[in-house]
Amino acid sequence: MSEREVLELLRENARYSTADIARMTDLEEDEVEAAIEELEAAGVVRGYQAVVDWDKLEDERVRAEVELNVRLDRETGYDDIAERLARFPQVTALRLVSGDYDFDMEVEGDSIREVSQFISEKVAPVPEITQTVTHYVMTSYKENGIELGDGEDDERLSVSP
């Protein structure tokens, strides 16, 4: 169970030190390290990334959500198509979903032109793909559970009963 607890804390903040995780739990520091190693070795934890508010940066970052519809045949399943798409570095997330379309794909690039070109030249021509609908992200309000607004100031009295 220690792995579960450590995982929860890493999901909250992957930069907690192992010493701090140990302080927050009943675990010793070396147990925390072992749990993290185990999570990584088992492929449960696949990486650690920063949650970025792109609006706060000068340089433009274009992101799009793309709905994909596909037609399967005897030789080609969802996994085959997914594997092929996922290899493109422009694709940042790819999920098979229920509902009106099949895949939900997130794409990133430096410009609208670059992203459009990627969709029209690399994605749309894939023979099994029958339709793409591209939604450019205009503003992001929440990423990975973190609200991107200006946040609320702590208005509490500094000392209270």
Partner: peptide, 13 residues
């Protein structure tokens, strides 16, 4: 520059 550990109410909204 004070960090307060003197607050008697939740920091959550």
């Amino acid at each position: 520059d004070v960090i307060s550990l003197g607050v008697g109410e939740p920091d959550f909204a």
